[in-house]
Computed example of a mutant assay.
Amino acid sequence: MPISRIAIGTPGEACHPDALKAAAAEFFSMLIFVFAGEGSGMAFNKLTDNGSTTPAGLVAAAVAHAFALFVAVSVGANISGGHVNPAVTFGAFIGGNITLLRGILYWIAQLLGSVVACLLLKFATGGLETSAFSLSTDVSVLNALVFEIVMTFGLVYTVYATAIDPKKGDLGIIAPIAIGFIVGANILAGGAFDGASMNPAVSFGPAVVSWTWANHWVYWVGPLIGAAIAALVYDNIFIGGNTHEQLPTTDY
């Protein structure tokens, strides 16, 4: 069971230069991702008179987030592992691939990166609103929770298969591409229902800047549950105790 490999970490890890560099990499990767992803929606609204909720707006959001996440994961992969998502970090922790203390550093950096990106967007656009994630009128909280669990399961399962599994071989650029593609596809599937976050930090930044917290918990609980399930399923079925290898701290 991967749960037996969960590690707290040492106090000195929180201030170790490698850990701080990894946290900085997560901050900048998240800033890049949120600025491009959230900014694309704001630009589409400006050009189409609030048309981001149209089919064309949904496709534009999916493409923008897929491209931006591909870049954000790629630029951070060699330093922090390119999590760019507190749910991915949580899934890696559940699988014993990152310590709790290092994971907390990642979370702080990811949340700050999202908030800073939204503040920069608000300033650069002359005060335009960074819209918080919200549920469609015909979608219940339970519906949205299931969407977030299933979509994040698919995302973290993909991360495990392409980036964490020690048997993956030299996939190189395939991992960031696959991760970007699954996020883009999930936005097409769930974007019209709850915004398809799959990422607590991506939801947190706009919520802070716009100070909109309605149903915000869904965008934390759903992704964290989905990530934990994906980690447990993939590790137990496809990695197993006999083949598991702790990833170098330079990766996760």
Rank of each mutant, 00 (worst) to 15 (best):
G103P: 10
V202K: 07
D194G: 11
A214P: 00
M1T: 09
I187N: 01
T162C: 08
P11W: 09
A196H: 05
P206M: 03
P248C: 08
F35R: 03
T48P: 08
C15W: 15
A192F: 08
G51P: 10
I229Y: 12
T212V: 10
T162L: 06
G184C: 10
G172Y: 04
T99Y: 02
H16S: 14
F181R: 02
V63Y: 05
A25E: 11
I177K: 05
A92I: 06
A231Y: 11
A161L: 07
Q110E: 01
P166D: 03
P2R: 09
G240F: 02
V183G: 03
F90C: 05
E38Q: 05
Y106T: 06
T137N: 09
A72E: 00
A175H: 08
A163H: 01
A66T: 15
S134T: 11
G12D: 14
S131Q: 15
V233R: 14
V84K: 04
V233L: 15
D49E: 15
I8L: 03
S136W: 04
G184A: 13
T89P: 04
R102S: 05
A144G: 13
V146K: 00
V88T: 07
A109E: 04
T54P: 14
A19C: 09
A64Y: 08
D235M: 05
V73W: 01
A178I: 02
G127R: 01
I32F: 11
G95T: 03
S52F: 10
A68T: 05
V208H: 01
E245H: 02
T48N: 14
L47R: 14
A14N: 06
F44A: 14
C15T: 15
G184W: 08
Y219K: 08
L171M: 07
Y157F: 15
F70V: 03
G12V: 01
H65T: 14
M30P: 04
V116G: 00
G126L: 09
V59S: 09
I239W: 05
V146Y: 05
H216I: 12
T89R: 09
N50I: 03
A214H: 13
A22K: 07
G190L: 05
I108V: 15
I108M: 08
F238Q: 07
T137L: 02
P206W: 04
Y252K: 06
L112Y: 01
G191F: 04
G226L: 07
I164K: 02
A62D: 11
A189W: 07
Y160A: 10
S197F: 01
V221S: 02
G169V: 09
W211T: 07
L232F: 11
T10S: 11
F27M: 06
D251P: 02
K122C: 00
A24V: 13
S136T: 04
A23V: 12
I237Y: 08
Y106D: 06
P11E: 01
G76Y: 00
G51H: 14
A201N: 03
F33I: 03
L47M: 15
C15H: 11
V150P: 10
N199G: 12
G240W: 02
G9L: 03
L224I: 14
G240T: 06
N215D: 14
W107A: 11
H83E: 00
I229L: 15
K168Y: 03
K46A: 15
G241L: 06
P17E: 13
I104R: 07
D18P: 10
N215G: 08
N215V: 05
G222H: 12
T162H: 02
G37A: 15
